[in-house]
Amino acid sequence: DHIPWITAVLPTVIICVMVFCLILWKW
């Protein structure tokens, strides 16, 4: 059976995008 890697990667991607947007917003 396949491991849904997207389910494991998606939260990390969302957190990175939120942090990236927060850094851009504070500049």
Score class of each variant (00 low, 15 high):
Leu24Glu: 07
Phe20Tyr: 02
Trp27Asn: 09
Val13Glu: 07
Pro4Val: 09
Val19Ala: 13
Trp25Tyr: 10
Cys16Glu: 00
Cys21Gln: 09
Pro4Cys: 14
Trp5Thr: 09
Ile3Phe: 03
Pro11Ile: 07
Ile15Gln: 01
Ala8Asn: 00
Leu10Glu: 13
His2Asp: 02
Val13Ala: 00
Met18Lys: 02
Thr7Phe: 14
Val17Cys: 14
Val19Glu: 04
Phe20Lys: 14
Met18His: 03
Trp25His: 07
Trp27Met: 03
Pro11Lys: 09
Ile14Asp: 11
Lys26Glu: 05
Trp5Gly: 02
Ile14Gln: 13
Trp27Cys: 05
Ile23Glu: 06
His2Tyr: 05
Val19Gly: 06
Pro4Thr: 03
Cys16Leu: 05
Ile6Ser: 07
Leu22Arg: 02
Pro4Ser: 06
Cys16Tyr: 03
Val17Arg: 08
Val13Cys: 01
Thr7Ala: 08
Asp1Leu: 00
Pro11Ala: 08
Trp25Asn: 12
Trp25Asp: 13
Thr12Leu: 13
Cys16Phe: 07
Leu22Gly: 06
Leu22Thr: 00
Leu24Val: 09
Asp1Tyr: 01
Lys26Arg: 01
Ile6Gln: 13
Pro4Phe: 10
Ala8Ser: 01
Thr7His: 06
Val17Gly: 11
Phe20Pro: 11
Phe20Gly: 15
Trp5Met: 09
Trp27Gln: 14
His2Ala: 06
Thr7Asp: 04
Val9Pro: 06
Val9Ala: 09
Ile23Val: 03
Lys26Gly: 04
Trp5Gln: 13
Cys21Arg: 12
Thr7Tyr: 09
His2Asn: 03
Ile23Gly: 14
Trp27Lys: 11
Trp5Ser: 03
Cys16Asp: 10
Trp27Tyr: 12
Ile14Leu: 10
Val9Leu: 08
Phe20Gln: 13
Met18Phe: 04
Leu10Thr: 11
Cys16Ile: 13
Lys26Leu: 13
Val17Tyr: 14
Pro11Glu: 06
Trp5Leu: 14
Val19Phe: 07
Ile3His: 14
Ile23Thr: 10
Leu24Ile: 10
Leu22Ser: 01
Asp1Cys: 01
Ile15Gly: 12
Asp1Lys: 01
Met18Pro: 07
Ile6Gly: 05
Leu22Glu: 01
Ile14Ala: 08
Trp27Pro: 05
Ile3Gly: 12
Leu22Cys: 15
Pro4Ile: 04
Asp1Asn: 01
Cys16Arg: 08
Asp1His: 02
Leu10Arg: 09
Cys21Ile: 13
Phe20Cys: 12
Ile14Val: 04
His2Val: 08
Met18Leu: 07
Leu10Gly: 04
Thr7Ile: 08
Val19Cys: 03
Ile15Met: 06
Leu10Phe: 03
Leu22Tyr: 06
Leu24Lys: 13
Leu10Gln: 15
Phe20Arg: 09
Cys21Gly: 14
Ile6Glu: 02
Val19Tyr: 14
Met18Ala: 10
Ala8Pro: 08
Phe20Val: 11
Asp1Trp: 00
Cys16Gln: 00
Leu22His: 08
Trp5Tyr: 15
Trp5His: 04
Phe20Asn: 06
Trp27Gly: 12
Leu24Arg: 12
Leu24Asp: 14
Ile23Arg: 08
Thr7Cys: 04
Val19Leu: 08
Trp25Lys: 12
Val9Cys: 10
Trp27Ile: 10
Thr12Val: 01
Phe20Leu: 05
Ile14Lys: 05
Cys21Ser: 06
Cys16Gly: 07
Cys21Asn: 06
Met18Val: 02
Pro4His: 05
Thr12Ile: 05
Val9Asp: 01
Leu10Val: 05
Trp25Thr: 09
Trp25Gln: 12
His2Lys: 04
Leu22Asp: 11
Cys16Pro: 11
Ile23Met: 05
Pro11His: 07
Ile14Glu: 12
His2Arg: 04
Val17Asn: 13
Pro11Val: 11
Cys21Ala: 10
Trp27Arg: 12
Pro4Trp: 04
Pro4Asp: 13
His2Ile: 15
Leu22Met: 01
Ile6Lys: 03
Leu24Phe: 12
Trp25Val: 15
Val13Gln: 07
Ala8Gly: 02
Ile14Asn: 03
Ala8Asp: 03
Lys26Pro: 14
Ala8Leu: 11
Ile15Arg: 04
Thr12Asn: 01
Cys21Phe: 03
Val17Ile: 11
Thr12Cys: 00
Leu24Asn: 14
Trp25Ala: 13
Val17Phe: 07
Trp27Leu: 07
Val9Gln: 02
Pro11Trp: 15
Val9Gly: 11
Cys21Thr: 11
Leu24Thr: 04
Leu22Ala: 00
Val13Pro: 04
Ile3Pro: 07
His2Phe: 10
Asp1Glu: 03
Leu10Asp: 07
Pro11Gly: 13
Ile6Thr: 01
Ala8His: 00
Ile15Tyr: 00
Val17Glu: 09
His2Pro: 10
Ile23Gln: 15
Pro4Tyr: 05
Cys21Val: 09
Trp5Asn: 15
Trp5Pro: 10
Val19Asp: 03
Trp5Glu: 03
Asp1Ser: 02
Pro11Leu: 01
Cys16Ala: 07
Ile14Tyr: 13
Ile14Ser: 10
Ile15His: 08
Leu24Ser: 12
Trp27His: 08
Trp5Ala: 09
Met18Gly: 10
Ile6Asp: 02
Ile6Pro: 11
Met18Asp: 02
Phe20Asp: 10
Cys21Asp: 15
Thr12Ser: 04
Val13Gly: 01
Ile3Tyr: 14
Thr12Phe: 07
Pro4Gln: 03
Trp25Cys: 02
Ile15Asn: 10
Leu24Met: 14
Leu24Pro: 06
Thr12Arg: 06
Ile3Asn: 02
Ala8Glu: 11
Leu24Ala: 13
Cys16Lys: 04
Trp25Met: 14
Cys16Ser: 04
Val17Ala: 11
His2Trp: 15
Val19Pro: 08
Leu10His: 03
Thr7Gln: 00
Asp1Gly: 02
Ile14His: 15
Pro11Gln: 04
Trp25Gly: 10
Lys26His: 15
Val13His: 06
Leu24His: 14
Cys16Thr: 01
Leu10Ala: 15
Met18Arg: 05
Ile3Leu: 03
Leu24Tyr: 07
Val13Lys: 02
Ile15Thr: 12
Trp5Lys: 15
Cys21Leu: 03
Ile14Thr: 12
Ile23Ala: 06
Pro4Met: 15
Val17Leu: 06
Val19His: 15
Ile3Ser: 06
Ala8Thr: 00
Trp27Glu: 14
Thr7Val: 13
Val9Asn: 02
Ile23Cys: 15
Trp5Val: 13
Pro4Leu: 04
Cys16Asn: 15
Val9Arg: 01
His2Gln: 04
Ile14Phe: 07
Thr12Lys: 06
Met18Glu: 12
Trp25Ser: 07
Met18Asn: 09
Val19Ser: 05
Thr12His: 12
Val17Gln: 07
Val9Ile: 03
Pro4Lys: 01
Lys26Tyr: 13
Leu24Gln: 07
Met18Ile: 05
Cys21Lys: 12
Lys26Asp: 12
Phe20Ile: 06
Cys16Met: 02
His2Cys: 13
Asp1Thr: 02
Thr7Glu: 02
Pro11Tyr: 10
Val19Asn: 01
Ile6Arg: 01
Ala8Phe: 14
Thr12Gln: 00
Val17Met: 06
Leu24Gly: 15
Lys26Thr: 13
Leu22Val: 00
Thr7Lys: 06
Asp1Gln: 00
Met18Thr: 06
Ile6Ala: 02
Cys21Pro: 11
Trp27Asp: 15
Leu22Gln: 07
Ala8Val: 13
Cys21Glu: 11
Trp25Phe: 08
Ile15Ala: 12
Cys16His: 14
Pro4Gly: 04
Phe20Ala: 15
Asp1Val: 00
Trp27Ala: 08
Leu22Pro: 09
Ile3Cys: 12
Cys16Trp: 04
Trp25Arg: 09
Ile6Phe: 02
Thr12Ala: 07
Val19Lys: 10
His2Glu: 02
Thr7Leu: 14
Met18Gln: 15
Ile3Glu: 14
Val9His: 15
Leu10Ile: 05
Val13Phe: 04
Trp5Cys: 11
Val19Trp: 05
Val9Ser: 10
Trp25Ile: 08
Cys21Met: 09
Val13Ser: 00
Lys26Ile: 08
Ile14Gly: 09
Trp25Glu: 08
Ile15Glu: 02
Pro4Arg: 09
Ile23Tyr: 14
Ile3Thr: 12
Ala8Lys: 05
Phe20Ser: 05
Asp1Phe: 02
Thr7Arg: 00
Phe20Thr: 04
Thr12Tyr: 14
Val17Asp: 08
His2Gly: 15
Thr12Met: 11
Leu22Lys: 12
Asp1Ala: 01
Met18Cys: 11
Pro11Thr: 08
Ile3Met: 11
Pro11Asn: 13
Pro11Phe: 07
Thr7Asn: 03
Cys16Val: 15
Leu10Ser: 11
Lys26Gln: 12
Ile15Phe: 14
Val17Pro: 15
Pro11Arg: 05
Val13Asn: 07
Leu10Pro: 06
Val13Tyr: 03
Ile15Lys: 03
His2Ser: 05
Ile6His: 10
Ile15Ser: 11
Ile6Val: 04
Ile3Lys: 09
Pro4Ala: 05
Ile3Ala: 14
Asp1Arg: 00
Val17Lys: 13
Val13Ile: 02
Thr7Gly: 14
Trp25Pro: 09
Trp5Ile: 04
Val19Thr: 05
Pro4Asn: 12
Thr7Ser: 03
Ile15Val: 11
Met18Tyr: 00
Ile14Cys: 10
Ile6Cys: 01
Trp27Thr: 14
Cys21Tyr: 10
Ala8Tyr: 04
Asp1Ile: 00
Trp27Val: 13
Lys26Cys: 11
Ile6Met: 01
Val13Asp: 02
Val19Ile: 01
Pro11Ser: 10
Val13Arg: 06
Ile6Leu: 00
Ile3Arg: 11
Trp25Leu: 08
Leu22Ile: 00
Ile23Phe: 04
Val17Ser: 10
Ile23Leu: 08
His2Leu: 06
Ile15Leu: 12
His2Thr: 10
Asp1Pro: 00
Cys21Trp: 02
Ile23His: 05
Ile23Asn: 09
Thr12Gly: 05
Val9Thr: 13
Trp27Ser: 09
Val19Arg: 03
Lys26Asn: 05
Trp5Asp: 15
Val13Trp: 09
Val19Gln: 03
Thr7Pro: 01
Leu10Cys: 15
Val19Met: 06
Ala8Arg: 08
Val13Thr: 00
Lys26Ser: 11
Cys21His: 10
Met18Ser: 02
Val13Met: 05
Val17Thr: 12
Asp1Met: 01
Val17Trp: 08
Val9Glu: 03
Ile23Lys: 12
Ile23Ser: 09
Ile3Val: 08
Leu10Tyr: 00
Trp5Phe: 08
Trp5Arg: 05
Leu22Asn: 01
Ile23Pro: 11
Ile6Asn: 00
Ile3Gln: 07
Lys26Ala: 09
Trp27Phe: 09
Thr12Pro: 08
Ala8Ile: 10
Ile14Met: 08
Leu22Phe: 13
Ile14Pro: 13
Ala8Gln: 00
Ile14Arg: 06
Val13Leu: 07
